[in-house]
Structure formats: C-alpha cells, structure tokens
Design a protein around this nucleic acid. Structure first.
Length: 839
RNA sequence: GCGGGCGUGGCGGAAUGGUAGACGCCGGGGACUUAAAAUCCCCUGAUCCUAUAGAUCGUGUGGGUUCGAGUCCCACCGCCCGCACCA
C-alpha cells in the first residue's frame, strides 16, 4: 500500500459509480432476510441541498449501511415532495413552468445527494408531481370518499381581493396579503374535508403507545388532538330558546354567575339582527388581532343581551353576554362562566362587576375565604353548593353529570380540539381533486379508468388566481354518470396529502394500483423514521391518519406507519455582520477570515462582528453550501463531521476548525490502513481486547443513534492501534476499524478495502464479529476512597474477593496517610470497582 | 398561562449512584525541515504550594437522602422549545 494521501476528489466518484454498477443498495422485496426499512423525510426540491438535509440523510445512511452489514434486507429509498407553492411563485416571478422548475431542481439536488455517497435505492425514486404518483393518490382519495371519510362543507378562507386568490394562513401577515399587501377578507367557499376526527380516539391511543417516539412529539400530538371530558347541557333562555353549553368543570356549576356566547354564535347573530349596538360589538370582536401578543393583552369585552339563562339547579336567571373571548369552533360556542375558578371569567366578571362566588376551597372551613386577585383553578373541596358541598372535585363532577343525565337536561361528553382536515387548495401545482360537478348528478368521482386526472400544461401565470379555474377548456367534461355537460373540480389537494402515503409507494410500486398490500406488509412499518421536529404535528399526524384510514378501508394491515421516530437537531453557525448605518449587514462565512478571537472580511481586511451561533438561514447569511465543503474536504469528512461531537438530537455548530479536524482524521485513518501488514505475526492481547470492546460498543451506539459516542470510540481505537507494534491483532484492529468506519466514511473504507487486497465491496461486507471472552478485562483498576474521597487507585485481578481488595486498599501508603490513625468504622467494597474506607 | 426539555472546562460534549471532564476543537510547548505545509510527541478545570510529590475547591443556586450524588428527592434561578382566550 502506498503512503499517498487519500484523494476524495477521485475516490468519491469512483466508488459511487461502483455502487451504482453493483446495484448494491436496491432492496429485494422477495428476500428472506430480516427486513429493515430506514426512511428519512423526503425533501422538497427547492433548488439545492442544504446542510440540514446532509445531517438528516447522513444519520439515516449510517443506520441503513450498518443494518445491511448486520445481515438485514434494507429498504432505504429517496424521492421528492414536489408539489407546493414555491414552484408557483417561481412561475409567477420568472415566467418558468412549475414542472420545469421542479424537475430541474430535482436533477440538481439528486446530483448533490449522489456526491455524498448515500446508500439509497434510486430504483424506487419518484416525485409526488409525477402523474403516475398523483394518479394513484386520486384513486386513494376516491376510495376514502366511498368509505365516507371525505365530505364537502362551506368553510372560511383568507381571500386576497387584489390577487383574487386564497391565501394560506402563513401568507397572511398582519391581516394583509404577503404579496399584494391588501387587507385580507374572510370568504366562505365549499371545500373538501377529510374526517380525521373520526380517528381522534385511536390516533390518541396510538400515539400514547408509540414508545420509540420522542416523548416530546408524543405530547405535542396529544395536545393537538386535545381530548377533554365534561358536561354538555342546555340553559333555558328567557326568550324561550335553549342554549347548549359545554364545561369541563360541572362541579363548579353553583359558581356560575353569567353565561356567554361567541360573537358568531347564532344567538348573538339573532340579537344583532334587531339591535345595532350588538351588531357593532360583534363587528368589533372580529376585527381584533389573533397574534399571541395581542391575545395576551386583549381586554375581555362583552355585550349584555338582556336575555336571562335559567340555572338548572337554582332556577336563578343569569345574564347572557356576547363575549370576545368565547370561541365559536370549540365545544358549543357558549359557556357557563364561573369567575371564581376560571381566570378569563374572573377578568370579565371584574370588569363588568358581576358576582364572583367561591365554590371550591382548600377545606370546608375556608368557604368564606376571599379571592386574591385571581381565579383559583386548583383542586379542593366543593363549598357553597347545596348538595355538592363537602364533595371532592372529581366526585362532584360525576354527581352533576349523573343528575343532568337523569334529569334529561345534559350529558357527559368528550370534546376534541382536533378539527377535520380541510384539503382544498385553490392552486395549480398540486394533485387535482378527482371529482366532477354535474348539475343533475351532483358530485361524481372520476372513474378509475380515467385516472390520473392530469394537470394541464398550457397554463397562464401572468394573472393572479387559480390557473385551473380560468383555463379555457380543462374543466369542461361530460358527467361520467349521465353524460351531460359538467365541470371538473378545480381545487387541488393540500401537499400534506402527498406526504401522507409516500412511504407505502416506496415499499411497493405496481403500475396498476397505488401499492400491493402483500408487498407493503413485508416492509411496513418503517423501522426508523428520521426528520425534523418541525413535522412533529401535522405531517406525522396526517401520515398516521392516512395509514389508519386506508386500514379501515381494507387496503392495509398496518395501523402505525412509523415504529420508531427520531428528530434530529439543526446545524447552526455564528453570524458575521457589520453596522451599516441603522441596518446590520451580514456576510457569508466563505467571505470571512476567522482568526483566533476575531474575524475579518476577506474583501477589505477589516474586522466584522461575530454574532451568536444560530440556525443557518439565508437572511443571516450564516450558511455553508454542502457542495462547497464536499469539494474542499470530500464527502467522508463532511459525513464524519455531521456525526461527530454533538448528540444527534441537539443542534450541531458548524465550524471551519471542526471540518478541518475531520479532514485530518480521514487522512489519519488512511495512513493507518497503510500499516496493515499481512506478514506481521504475534499477538497483542490488550489491543485485541480494546478492538472487541469497541466493536460491541460502536454497534450499541449506532443502534441507539448515538453517533457522537460511536465516533469518540473510533478515535480511541485509532489512537491505540497507531501506538501498537505490528502483530496479527493489530492487523485485525485495522481491518475492524475500516469495517466500523465504513457506514460513516464509505468511500475511504472502499479504497482501504481494495488496498488491503480484499475482494468485493466493503459496502457488502459483514459487521465484524465479537469474541465475548475478550470483552472482559482480566485486570481492573480499583478506586480507593477515604470518606468518599479518592486517595489512590490500584490494580487488581478481575473478580478479586472483597477481603483481598480491602487488604490491598489498607496497604496503600496514601490511604494510610489520609486515615492518619483514625478508627476504621466501616469498609465498603464494590467488587472490580472501588473500596471506600469510613474512618 | 399550560406542557416539555436543558444548565458539566475557553467551546461541542462523555460519565449502569462508585476514579468528573472520555473524544473532538481551540490554546501552549517541543520534534522533523534551509523554511513552510504535512506529520508526530508532550501539556492544557481552578486555586494553593515547600511544584515530577501534595492539598483544597469544582457539574446553575440552596437544602436533603447515602459510606459515596453531575446522576435520586425537595425548593429556587436561568435559558430553550411547543401550545395558547380550547371553557
């Protein structure tokens, strides 16, 4: 073997080509090996790969390559989440077609992923904007429709009156359209919905059982689904109507001092119809901002309708208000207000001088305690409440529900925060919703043999609005049922639908249907899913819902798509900036020289301010382009950096010094591989032990996705091996290092494998075996403490008796000096670990 | 407000209740070299000191449990994230 430097600019390409040639990462659905499905969240083809993709896909790649070495049949696919608004924006801004723009980006980004040497099964690649994919999606959508899981409903959208278009919530900034700056209006449109609320219960129970998901994500989903239990009951109103309300605190019913409805509640609307003061108040409520800060400080406002609501137990008439803090879309849009034990009600009652009775207290004796400026929402005993007085909160809740149900005026109910999923988007670049509107037959699904409903290519983006709607001919079709003139649906599906079943299509991709159930059953569930925490709620919840919905329709057997989930941290970098008048001007790291404590701009040599280490973002310019660093250091150094130092779930600070260290290590390993000497003989028991211990530990670390620890262990073994004299055990250590490093630095490993004279690809080699007898040391270091403080260490044979260790410890001069003749009261001996002398 | 997480050297971070700071980065010193690059070796928590020895302190703060606490318990402080007028 030569002593030349490892040259990634040559080796990377060579081995990437060799892997393609050997097709060694193509998954075989007919294999008898244990299966392993490793999946990273597929990217949106925005233009170029960013460093976050590199970190995400490197982690998945190490796991996929490792599992393959352990003998699994690995499915590790990649594709493109290709529908979405950036393509349409590009079409409007640059006059390019969304499809052309998207496929161009895919080509660029695929090339970048290839440069990183990921062990991906490219034979299964697809983009969600391929008509083949979205055609199957249309078939599934119709399937859900036929199973009663799709419906249409009037729903409010954000309407931009200048651009004549519907805006997503995130496109509305301070109540104005992001592009036009026009005041956004609320409009009602007929839209498509998926019945995710039908699955609220099982989605909640399911997420609670997903033990291999991060606790954080599980809690976020639980909160999002938001199950609450309470009592729904009706107030009789003085105008003869009834008003249903929902409460989670029926135990406090005797503390109710007013009733309130939302501004858009029918009762409020009815009052406003012949009371212009009320109408004015309602209009004012709608104007209020909805940002967190505004809500925080928003004053509780109400309008007294003059109507009375009859308390179900006391018969007393409570005043009925229209209140700005009551939400129409939660519960019944109306509440019984208990100011003593709900902070919002407390603030309202204080403002309008309404009674604030106490009905919960720390004890019966505290029934008369005044409130200390705020409501008391906590536990306690019920007071001032007729037959409930003296009961605990939970018992009182049950008692009131029982009486309400017996009296027929209310019932115990469960209320969910989760809403049905509105999937209609008035956009071009998405999956056309496969339905036809016929004047006579109503809404008719497009027949199977007419799928896919393809997007027209001759579209015009020069005008705002939905190009499908104003296309001259596309929407004109014959009704599939009666044959008369009808119109296509011009809405497209939310892009989250595309990512709700792509993992099934990766597992199985027949031409004539979305997937083959039997083939999917072989691969699903995904064994390890890896992606960003930003998808903790929507994407992961929708994908879980689609999987369950398809299972309910009999298309699938699996209920949870992702057995294990990992959310990786972001890549961060310090910022470089300079004050330019009042503005802060930022500079790219590539344009800055970092010197010791300071930094200077390359262009003028003058210093720049070094800012905080934050997430890489274009606006702060603290970004590094993966292609640049691959060119400078090679794919393996970049991959190694992504795995080093920071635990994978935490943020990883990018640094020039760090990547240089990784580049050095690549060369250092390469030199060590050069010391592989087939003629060497003799043994090195210590190194052999270290080698086997490392093999076992690195395997455990990779399985736990603790890549930073695996990296540290490989550094340690490298140092030990470098220092060792040539021997058979040293050769074994070098060969083992190469194999262990191969999932992380596959190009270097292949190059070394070939140089060692091994045949075939290291990517198809097996993980090194462990000799269990070499995992245990025969000598151990014993810590000797006096009163819990370390005084000495000594070496003893493994498994030495307590008596032996005690004697050895007491023989230590340092220990004796520390004890200094004091009386020994107790000696604690932990075999193979320590001796603590209490004196 | 509710829910969750995290606080360890100059920095990123290791550490089944048992030798705190593995490993990497930065920094310092040295070797090789005409020189540089590359590479290799040594040192690198703080303080004290009679300095190859030794001592004291040290994991956000204050208590507690224990022979022994970064780790377990209680209280507090700070930072980060998610949700949020959800009755």
């Amino acid at each position: 073997m030569t002593n030349e430097r490892f040259d990634p600019s040559v080796a990377d390409r060579r081995w990437q080509a060799a892997w393609d040639e050997a097709r060694c990462f193509e998954a075989d659905s007919d294999s008898n090996k244990p299966k392993s499905y490793v999946l990273e969240m597929f990217p949106y083809p925005s233009g170029r790969i960013h460093i976050g993709h590199v970190r995400n896909y490197t982690m998945g790649d190490v796991l996929a390559r490792y599992r393959k070495m352990r003998g699994d049949e690995v499915l590790h696919p990649m594709g493109w989440d290709a529908f979405g608004m950036p393509a349409e924006n590009a079409a409007m801004e640059k006059g390019v077609h969304p499809a052309g723009w998207t496929y161009q980006n895919i080509e660029t980004m695929k090339g970048q992923l290839k440069q990183l040497g990921f062990a991906l099964d490219w034979s299964r690649e697809f983009a969600t904007c391929d008509p083949e994919y979205y055609g199957h999606e249309q078939a599934l959508f119709i399937e859900l429709f036929e199973n009663g899981l799709v419906y249409r409903k009037e729903s409010e959208v954000n309407w931009d009156p200048v651009d004549m278009t519907v805006l997503a919530n995130e496109q509305v900034i301070d109540g104005k359209g992001w592009r036009s700056g026009a005041e956004v209006e609320k409009r009602k449109l007929n839209q498509w919905f998926l019945k995710i609320t039908d699955f609220a219960d099982e989605l909640l129970a399911g997420v609670q059982a997903l033990e291999s998901w991060p606790q954080k994500v599980r809690l976020m989903q639980e909160n999002w689904i938001g199950k609450s239990q309470g009592l729904e009951f009706a107030f009789e109103l003085s105008n003869g109507e009834t008003l249903p309300v929902y409460t989670t605190r029926p135990d406090t019913i005797f503390g109710a001092s007013f009733v309130a409805v939302a501004a858009d509640h029918p009762v409020a609307q009815a009052v406003a119809a012949n009371n212009c003061e009320a109408a004015k108040f309602i209009a004012e409520c709608k104007r209020g901002g909805t940002t967190a800060a505004e809500l925080e400080t928003a004053e509780k406002l109400g309008f007294d309708t003059g109507i009375g609501a009859k308390h179900p137990f006391t018969g007393e008439h409570l005043p009925l208000f229209i209140a700005n803090f009551v939400l129409m879309d939660y519960g019944t849009g109306a509440i019984m207000a208990v100011p003593g034990h709900d902070q919002r009600d407390f603030e309202f009652a204080t403002k309008y001088a309404l009674p604030i009775p106490r009905v919960v207290a720390a004890s019966v004796e505290d029934a008369g305690e005044p409130f200390d400026g705020e409501a008391e929402a906590g536990d306690g005993v019920i007071v001032n409440s007729d037959f409930l007085s003296g009961m605990e909160v939970e018992a009182a809740k049950r008692e009131v529900i029982t009486r309400a149900e017996a009296g027929g005026w209310g019932k115990g109910t469960t209320v969910w925060r989760l809403r049905d999923w509105g999937v209609s988007r008035q956009r071009y670049w998405g999956t056309p919703i496969p339905f036809i509107h016929c004047d006579d037959c109503g809404v008719v699904p497009v027949p199977q043999d007419q799928l896919p409903v393809k997007l027209p290519e001759d579209v015009d983006f020069s005008k705002p609005g939905n190009p499908l709607l104003r296309h001259p001919t596309w929407k004109d079709v014959a009704c599939p049922k009666c044959g008369s003139d009808a119109q296509r649906e011009t809405d497209t599906l939310d892009t989250f639908v595309n990512s709700s079943w792509y993992f099934l299509r990766f597992a199985s991709q027949p031409a004539d249907k979305p997937f083959d159930a039997a083939e999917v059953a072989k691969w699903m569930p995904v064994d390890q899913y890896i992606g960003g925490i930003e998808h903790a709620i929507l994407h992961l919840l929708y994908a879980r819902f689609w999987t369950r919905a398809l299972a309910r329709c009999g298309k699938l057997d699996v209920k949870e798509p992702f057995a294990s989930l990992f959310t990786q941290g972001m890549v961060t970098h310090e910022t470089y900036s300079r004050k330019d008048g009042a503005r802060e001007e930022y500079f790219m790291p590539a344009d800055v020289d970092r010197t010791g404590d300071g930094a200077t701009l390359k262009a003028d040599g003058k210093p720049v301010q070094i800012g905080k280490v934050i997430k890489m973002s274009k606006s702060k310019k603290n970004v590094v382009d993966p292609e640049d660093i691959i060119r400078d250091y090679g794919a393996d150094a970049v991959r190694w950096f992504m795995l080093s130092d920071s635990p994978p779930e935490r943020d990883l600070p990018w640094s020039e010094a760090g990547i240089e260290g990784c580049g050095r290590f690549v060369q250092r390993l390469w030199r060590l591989f050069g010391h592989y000497d087939p003629t060497a003989s003799g043994e090195d028991k210590g190194l052999a032990r270290k080698t086997h211990q490392t093999i076992a530990a690195v395997a455990d670390d990779i399985e736990a996705l603790a890549f930073n620890k695996a990296v540290a262990r490989l550094y340690e073994l490298t140092s030990a091996t470098e220092k060792a004299a040539p021997s058979e055990d040293r050769n074994h250590a070098i060969r083992s290092l190469l194999l262990m490093a191969s999932p992380m630095m596959p190009h270097l490993a292949e190059e070394g494998w070939q140089a060692m004279g091994e045949s075939g690809l290291v990517s198809e080699a097996a993980w090194p075996d462990v000799d269990p007898s070499l995992l245990v040391e025969d000598e151990v270091t014993i810590a000797v403490q006096h009163m819990g403080k370390l005084r000495d260490t000594l070496t003893a044979p493994k498994g030495a008796s307590k008596e032996t260790l005690e004697a050895l410890a007491l023989a230590s001069e340092k220990v004796q000096r520390s004890i200094d003749g004091a009386e020994i009261r107790k000696v604690i001996v932990v075999p193979d670990r320590l001796v603590n002398i209490v004196a």
